[in-house]
Design a protein around this nucleic acid. Structure first.
Lengths: 213, 213
DNA sequence: ATCCACATTATTGTATGCAATGAAGGCGGG
DNA sequence: CCCGCCTTCATTGCATACAATAATGTGGAT
């Protein structure tokens, strides 16, 4: 990935990072002038960045009224997990059918190990990041070049972060187990197996989210 | 839908229309200054419009090198139809489960009639427009507010247009039949039926596309 | 005291000028 | 004659000034 040298890219990444890290909480107003000053840029690239984030579904832009970091309702989470339940099993089934190169499989296994480590240490933020990385890698491996773009709007880390925070030890272990099983299913080139595990993985996450909110 | 009074909206709709109507053919370069002059605006709102179209997947923007109307490869079509085959059956199943108000069903039936008329008259462009409208209505009826946005990038009329152009009389009649059956399945509140018909509808379209390219 | 109208103000939307980047063409060397 | 470098040019990217809009606060009337 090229470190975009355009100011608009800088702004995009900076604001995105603010949102994903939680520094800019949901509902926060994103004033163009304020951001521009903070980032040492003019309003033009900041404006472009905000629009892009709007297209990503991370901020809500109202004409003549500025932009705010989106607030997720219970219904939003429900919708998001339903769409993921539809698309991600498809992605891993495709990946399993195509078959992945050994280096890619190794990378996935490494991510599993790293996630297990983070889970044990209780480093939830790191875990959320690694988890996103893992899912993104699988989606990329599907061979459908449109899938990653389609899922960006429903794969935002704040959601996942919220998910992990609520996990007890058993649920966490189960989730980590799903990851391993997923890689094994793909390695075995069994699309049905892979898709089923992914469905379980996502429904388990959705159930956990539902139960306490 | 409000007729956006912002210049950026005007530009967005104008350029979008150029592309969807075929006035701006795939591969056409979209110069900011040129468009701005044509539309009687400055480059700023035109730029915003182009970015939005880029997010929609209608134009390809290369840093420092401008924007072009996207060119669809056979692989792109394959990917698109696979994703539609995943998402649209889900949408109609949901619609069937929820159940639609009679006025909505009536509107869908009217669309069927209008499409049948256009098909008989050979008005392919009109048919494509009505068809898009029909599918969009179904997607909106799914009750998942994220689905429409997700599908915009794969529901662009030029593709559909190309599809209808190749249809012979029998294939066309079958396609129109699918539409009617879809509405009936939803009216009967049978999710499985609705989803199956939609899958057939889309696979038939994909097969037709494949066969002659 | 409450409500409405109006002026004020903060912020977004648009235009324009300048800077920076990439492409094209010409010039010189091999 | 062909290849590579350098200059030139068109176009995008960015900054800033100005215009338009919506929110806010104030004053007066009921």
């Amino acid at each position: 990935m090229s470190t975009g040298r355009r100011a608009a890219d800088t702004a995009y990444e900076a604001v995105r990072r603010m949102i994903l890290s939680g520094e800019a909480a949901p509902g926060t107003r994103l004033g163009e002038a304020e951001l521009a000053e903070t980032l040492g840029l003019s309003r033009t690239p900041v404006r472009e960045a905000i629009q892009r984030l709007g297209a990503d579904g991370l901020v809500e832009v109202l004409p003549h009224r500025g932009a705010r970091v989106v607030l997720w309702s219970a219904r939003d989470l429900e919708e998001i997990f339903e769409l993921r339940t539809l698309l991600e099993p498809y992605a891993v089934a495709r990946a399993a059918r195509i078959g992945l190169e050994e280096p890619v499989l190794a990378e996935l296994r490494d991510l599993c190990s790293a996630m297990e480590g983070a889970a044990v240490e209780g480093e939830v933020a790191l875990l959320a990041r690694l988890n996103s990385h893992f899912h993104e890698a699988l989606i990329d491996a599907s061979g459908n070049s449109r899938l990653p773009g389609m899922l960006t709007s429903v794969m935002h880390a704040p959601l996942i972060l919220g998910t992990f925070h609520r996990y007890d030890a058993e649920t966490m272990a189960r989730s980590m187990g799903h990851h391993r099983e997923l890689v094994d299913a793909i390695t075995a080139r069994d699309p049905e197996w892979a898709a089923s595990v992914m469905r379980s993985h996502l429904r388990a996450a959705a159930a956990n989210l539902k139960e306490d909110q």
